[in-house]
């Protein structure tokens, strides 16, 4: 473990993922969903995690929340360090996922917003009851005070007619309002970390813009760091301070957002940026798809996982797996183009 390089000074970190491996042991084989992820979420900043389906971005988030179903899933290696305000460092991988310590952290210190607000809200309870339940779980409040807190949260997420909405059931709300409720729910206990997994993917573009606006405003007023998981490069460019690009269970590039968009280094990042249409660039931009396809998750690849699709592949790529290393100030990349492979 001592070879793992620290991407950032630990002092400003609030969450640090070190060499995380999460695997699923299935009949058809072992899925290495997260295969050595190193990430740092800085205090009061937004980390964007991009990648295509199956790259392990959601499983990384679920590992942090300790919501990986076991069996078949298991965190087999690595650390997830939560840096508390009082200076205490907690390694979440050492906690019992069902135990009282993890349950106290989940929802209160680290909260999560999911992609599909319809399936993550309980259809049988009103919006107010669900927010109040979460509040009462973590704070010593009676039912009335918890409901008041719920109402306050609905005001905060700028839902129209919050008093009426408090008594509404999820099916009575539009998709955008449901996602606002999810955000209210997640922020109701003032978490220091908010993990948002594709929070706007199921929404229309005008509603997406509203939700992104809301998240930015809320971040200014509360003391939260956001880990924003998405496949949408537009959303990332608008929301993130730092970006981690994932491919097949690994972080292949990690850099500040402007650096990543203007000077991408990893061939996969370059490929992603070249393959998406950008509004207003019709005629100036030819879409260059990435060759081949994402390998099946059970296949074990020798060397760099992107090598079979990489346009700049070299012999060394098939032999050794590159580590995430500094290629420029604050810019980390896992690629043999920027480091010397072992002889």
């Amino acid at each position: 473990m001592n070879q793992i390089k620290q991407p950032h000074a630990v002092t400003e970190a609030i969450l640090e993922i070190k060499d995380l491996h999460t695997r699923f042991f299935l009949e058809k084989g072992v899925v290495r969903a997260v295969d050595g992820v190193n990430l740092v979420l800085k205090r009061k900043s937004t980390l964007g995690v991009v990648g295509e389906s199956g790259c392990g971005k959601s499983i990384t988030a679920m590992s942090v929340m300790r919501l990986i179903q076991s069996p078949p899933g298991k965190i087999v290696q690595g650390e997830i360090n939560l840096y508390r305000k009082d200076g205490v460092i907690v390694d979440l991988t050492k906690l019992d996922p069902r135990g009282p310590r993890m349950r106290a952290i989940r929802g209160a210190e680290i909260a999560m917003v999911f992609q599909e607000p319809m399936t993550s809200l309980n259809p049988l309870f009103t919006v107010g009851e669900q927010i109040a339940e979460s509040v009462r779980l973590h704070q010593q409040l009676d039912r009335r005070a918890a409901l008041e807190r719920a109402l306050e949260m609905l005001y905060k997420v700028q839902i129209s007619e919050p008093k009426q909405r408090l008594h509404a059931y999820p099916h009575q709300l539009s998709g955008g309002m449901r996602q606002r409720v999810m955000i209210a729910l997640a922020l109701s206990c003032n978490p220091s970390i908010l993990i948002a997994d594709e929070p706007t993917t199921a929404l229309d573009v005008t509603v997406q813009a509203q939700i992104l606006d809301l998240m930015r405003q809320l971040q200014d007023t509360i003391d939260s760091s956001i880990m924003m998981i998405t496949h949408n490069l537009g959303v990332i460019s608008q929301m993130a301070d730092e970006v981690a690009v994932m491919y097949l269970g690994r972080v292949v590039e990690y850099a500040p957002v402007r650096e990543l968009f203007h000077h991408p280094l990893h061939p996969y990042t370059v490929g992603l940026l070249n393959s998406v249409p950008v509004l207003g660039r019709k005629g100036q931009k030819v879409l260059i798809p990435i060759a081949g396809m994402v390998p099946t998750p059970t296949s074990e690849i020798q060397g760099c996982a992107f090598a079979p699709r990489c346009p700049r592949v070299m012999p060394a790529c098939h032999e050794h797996n590159p580590r995430l290393e500094s290629a420029a100030p604050a810019h980390y990349v896992a690629c043999w183009l920027y480091a010397d492979p072992p002889a």
């Binding site: 129209s160 539009s174 955008g176 573009v205 005008t206 997406q208 813009a209 509203q210 992104l212 606006d213 949408n232 490069l233 537009g234 959303v235 460019s237 608008q238 957002v257 402007r258 968009f261 998406v276 950008v278 509004l279 207003g280």
Partner: peptide
């Protein structure tokens, strides 16, 4: 309003959406 809501995939261009009140 629809065009203004599209995130531009460039961190140097800030999304300045024209707000739409109410619901569809």
């Amino acid at each position: 309003a629809l065009i203004s809501a599209i995130p531009p995939a460039d961190p140097d261009i800030k999304l300045e959406r024209i707000p739409l009140s109410g619901e569809v």
